[in-house]
Design a protein around this nucleic acid. Structure first.
Lengths: 204, 204
DNA sequence: TCTTTGGTGTCAGTGACTGTCAAAGTGAGG
DNA sequence: CCTCACTTTGACAGTCACTGACACCAAAGA
């Protein structure tokens, strides 16, 4: 049964991720070697790379899961809602998650920003995610009106702009040592200020 | 004379970059080793790393120069111009540059997108650049009205949103095999659609 | 001429990652 | 209980990006 096998595989991944996170927190990302992580969970370096394609993935894999949740939230939004509002609602998934364990998430984000290569990898993931988000927004436009031709170009930019707001709010809090609980407020304020004038349904 | 030394250093960097680019174009970024590049310009691997901090930097250094030009363009814009329009004007620096040698730039961008690590590094540079851009926009707000408190948070998001438009337009062209000459049109269209409603001068 | 200084090659080393292979574990069927 | 197929694992060797140390050399200046 492959699903059972998948389950145990996920369990091992979690064990690795927890051990790695502890080491990263204690001594930094760059200063921690894959050998150390592997030793901490009692496996060879070779096996570590059977569960994670890279050292970076250990830190960043959770974002993939959050991305899935964000898509699910998008599906639950009414079709006639303006895209900008739908995007704002989607971000609540991340906002809530960040408040669940604010202390730890802050520490993880600091780890990410402490290492340029890690931050870069995160940005690349976010970038890919924006592409997918634009696709789904386009699908929603068509679902709303099968005759409409969604403007893929504008939708891609719209997703990017929304994430720019989120990114700005997050780094504002992290850098200013503001409370993560105020993230929703900052995000509201920023997205309201950047709310676009135009419509997005018309094709280019 | 340090300026003369800087000059020759820049000349060597250019020679390396040209040789490297030829190799990347011919056989791909990942498939080209630093040893090969060094051999192509007749130096040791060690010396290569005296001129470039990493293999990626060879491809991405030009963006730093373009960033400087973009800042200069921002300085030449009237202070009372809306930020969104100033940003659009700044991008003309990049648009013109991309039309100068469209064929080559397209090839380079394909190299970048062919390697996730390279794309990630580029996104990280763009991200840092947005931070600086937000700082300068804030300075312009103060220069316009010394009493005003610029909203750093919104300005950061604004810069990010503008780049999202640019990024969307570029990838739209590259993926759709559209002509790079139409970049300005796509950029106009996208930035017009995303033009923000709100003002940016009021502090949060 | 002697010395200082900046650039260079060589060498050795680290660390992320990959391919290969043989051994060990695991479950189904005889 | 044994066996056969299949998966997982560790050990090993190798590649490649990158770094530190050091000796060397050429040019510039005292």
């Amino acid at each position: 049964m492959s699903s059972l096998r998948e389950l145990s595989r996920q369990a091992v991944r979690t064990r690795i991720a927890e051990a790695a996170e502890a080491l990263f927190l204690a001594q930094g990302f760059h200063e921690t070697t894959v050998d150390e992580i592997a030793a901490a969970v009692g496996m060879s370096q070779r096996s570590f790379f059977r569960y994670f394609a890279s050292k970076e993935e250990v830190v960043l894999e959770k974002f993939d899961r959050q991305g899935e949740e964000l898509f699910a939230r998008l599906n639950s939004r009414p079709l006639d809602e303006p895209e900008w509002d739908s995007l704002r609602a989607c971000f609540d998934v991340l906002v809530v998650r960040l408040n669940d364990d604010a202390q730890r998430d802050r520490a993880i984000q600091e780890i990410i920003e402490s290492c340029p290569a890690l931050l870069a990898a995160q940005l690349e993931r976010v970038n890919r995610f924006q592409e997918q988000l634009a696709d789904r927004l386009a699908a929603r436009v068509v679902a709303r009106d099968p005759e409409a031709l969604p403007d893929r170009l504008v939708l891609r930019a719209l997703a990017g702009a929304a994430f720019a707001c989120f990114q700005a709010a997050i780094t504002y809090i992290l850098r200013g040592n503001d409370d993560l609980a105020r993230l929703a407020d900052h995000l509201d304020h920023t997205m309201e200020a950047l709310r676009p004038l135009g419509s997005v349904t018309a094709a280019h």
